[in-house]
């Protein structure tokens, strides 16, 4: 690989990293797992003057639950950490399901959750889960910390709300109001392929009634599709076949796919519908069994 010339820093604290970014006046790029940045450098789609590698900063490779159930994912938590996380397996079905289908096993050892959300790829998996779960990003810049709700974080394809001198240090996912249920389904042509279409569904259940339903889609629009409004038809309702069908239709309508070599817009919409309905049906079945 022959990228353009760049300078390289590997600071050992967030303060130092932010200072370098600030000095570089927008010509530097943060590198976390490098699994999106390095391909961009290789193709010379990105030619930053400086790379600020945050991998030497201690204390960022965590994911943990607060006492109230808030999930915090540090900037160096790798996809693989989530894939094999016992915490997630029990508490966060949507994230846990997604972790196994992000990229391939090799990429998952390096790529980070936060880096993926920052990358804001319309086909990226994690941003979709973050929107469905109503998460937020914690950013640190020269003026201190701020929290950015996910709905304001992804501005467009490959564009996020961070200022050039800010680093995302943590992703925060609020606790479920009730039982957390949900899932993630992805249609890919091969392991390591980005989504032709994928669906993240997160439900807060109160008995057999949906208290809050969240949903977002990847691969079927110019940016990650926020389908929270569409799936809110389920709010306050049980997961009956009719309600599931209505929700699947509403979400499919919110998709904005294009016809390309992966399939027609109609096909991708159909996949979205099928996946929403499969996730909801499977939740309904498990709830029934439990009851």
């Amino acid at each position: 690989m022959y990228p353009s010339r760049f300078d390289y820093d590997a600071p050992s604290s967030i303060g130092e990293a932010v200072a370098i970014l600030d000095r570089s006046g927008g010509e530097a790029k943060v590198m976390a797992g490098g699994q999106s940045l390095i391909p961009m450098l290789k193709l010379r789609f990105a030619s930053p003057e400086r790379i600020v590698d945050i991998n030497n900063i201690p204390g960022l490779d965590y994911h943990r639950l607060d006492a109230d159930g808030t999930l915090r994912i540090g900037a160096l938590c790798r996809h693989e950490d989530l894939e094999f996380s016992e915490t997630l397996a029990e508490s966060h079905p949507t994230l846990y399901a997604a972790a196994a289908v992000v990229a391939d096993p090799i990429v998952r050892t390096r790529g980070t959750f936060v880096g993926s959300v920052c990358h804001a790829d319309p086909q990226g998996d994690w941003a979709a889960t973050m929107i469905a779960l109503d998460g937020r990003i914690v950013a640190v810049g020269p003026n201190g910390r701020r929290e950015i709700p996910m709905k304001d974080f992804v501005l467009g394809p490959f564009t996020n709300a961070l200022a050039y001198n800010e680093i995302a240090v943590e992703a925060v996912i609020p606790p479920a109001k009730g039982k957390a249920r949900g899932g993630y389904l992805k249609l890919e042509r091969r392991i390591g392929d980005f989504a032709t279409a994928s669906v993240a569904v997160a439900l807060d259940m109160d008995g057999d009634v949906v208290r809050r339903a969240g949903c977002a889609l990847a691969g079927v629009g110019g940016k990650t599709i926020d389908a929270n409004a569409a799936i809110s038809v389920l709010n306050g309702k049980p997961l009956t076949p009719d309600n599931i069908e209505a929700a699947a239709d509403a979400v499919a309508a919110a998709a904005d796919p294009r016809t390309d070599h992966r399939g027609s817009a109609a096909y991708k919409r159909q996949i979205v519908k099928t996946f929403v309905s499969r996730i909801l049906t499977s939740v309904a079945r498990t709830e029934q069994k439990a009851a």
């Binding site: 249609l187 042509r189 294009r258 016809t259 390309d260 399939g263 027609s264 817009a265 096909y267």
Partner: peptide, 25 residues
């Protein structure tokens, strides 16, 4: 035989051609 082609065949009952150019918008 990508899934979208198989699906299209199932839906339409018609043969599916894969010859270029690819369909776009």
């Amino acid at each position: 035989l990508m899934p979208n082609r198989v699906y299209e065949a199932l839906q339409t009952g018609q043969d599916v051609s894969g010859a270029p150019p690819v369909k776009g918008e």
